[in-house]
Design a protein around this nucleic acid. Structure first.
Length: 292
DNA sequence: CACCAGGGTACCT
DNA sequence: AGGTACCATGGT
């Protein structure tokens, strides 16, 4: 029977950490609630002592979309068991047990991370918010709730001018986003098809997009497609690898990439997310919901 | 007010 | 091949 709420009984799932961990950029914290739009559905989540409670604006007969997005079915302990025995990783996990990876829409993920380069997470959130408000379709929200918008489609953005995009404060990233939108809209880049390719093939396809290098490609592979071996190396993870695994040595990026590919195992991407979170929260000043 | 931010590219030896 | 300035903008 269609209902506008449900809950997932799930263990070892830290919703706050997960939704503020810099993998998705549209979650707004309202007290104990987390509000956002997934595809074209407004949703609010709350962590309870038995799991995660969810409420939508429109009654749902099938909650698979949310179950999939949150990766409820994942055997989380089995992931942790594939990690190497390692004091640094152990400390990172201890810092935030229950941090999870989401499974996002590929286009939204690709576009968001094109906008992420040399931006702080709060700024990325701001750019994405403006972009959605300006070019996204409005979605149904409960009475009394602020308006929300879907993430704008590649087709919609492909029809924009570069200056329209620059008005969303994305600066030099505007031509990159526009080019990506045009490649997806024209079919030159088949995002659906990447799911059936090997991680190497999919990465090479993504890197063809202007403004997308190894790091952004790996973010999309990990956060949208679930290629668990993808290991995005940003400034924080670079710092983690250098300080924790190669202290007092000058190690160049190619060697760090090689190390990450061989050392962390089949779920390296999960390990990466723990190292990222660990480095960002190690010296907390103001640690609260996505802002640090 | 310098410095930095979930980078990538073009242009230099 | 390997290093480096530059891109635009806002937080700290």
């Amino acid at each position: 029977m269609p209902a506008n709420e449900t809950y997932f009984a799930v263990d070892q799932y830290d919703l706050d950490a997960t939704l503020s961990s810099g993998q998705a950029f549209r979650w707004k914290q309202k007290g104990k609630n987390w509000e956002s739009v997934i595809a074209d559905r407004w949703v609010v989540l709350q962590q309870t002592d038995v799991g995660i409670h969810a409420r939508t604006a429109v009654p749902q007969s099938d909650w698979t979309w949310l179950w999939h997005y949150l990766q409820i079915e994942l055997d989380f302990p089995a992931i942790l068991e594939t990690f190497p025995s390692d004091e640094h990783l152990a400390r990172a996990i201890l810092q935030c047990a229950g941090l999870r990876l989401l499974r996002q829409d590929p286009w939204e993920c690709l576009a968001s991370f094109i906008l992420s380069s040399t931006k702080q997470i709060v700024q990325i959130q701001q750019i994405v918010s403006v972009l959605c408000a300006r070019f996204g379709e409005s979605v149904v929200v409960p009475a009394g709730t602020e308006p929300w918008f879907a993430f704008p489609s590649a087709n919609r953005l492909a029809g924009c001018s570069e200056s329209e995009l620059r008005e969303c404060k994305m600066g030099f990233r505007a031509p990159y986003l526009l080019a990506a939108a045009k490649m997806v809209a024209s079919g030159e880049l088949d995002l659906q098809g990447l799911a059936n390719r090997t991680v190497i093939e999919a990465r090479n396809e993504l890197i063809e997009v202007p403004g997308v290098g190894r790091k952004i490609a790996d973010c999309v592979l990990l956060f949208a497609y679930g290629f668990q071996e993808a290991f995005p190396i940003d400034v924080w993870v670079m710092k983690a690898l250098r300080e924790l695994y190669f202290p007092k040595r000058r190690v160049k990026p190619p060697r760090l990439i090689a190390f990450s590919e061989s050392y962390f195992g089949p779920n390296a991407g999960y390990a990466q997310q723990y190292l990222f979170h660990y480095m960002r929260t190690r010296h907390p000043k103001t640690r609260k919901g996505g802002t640090i």
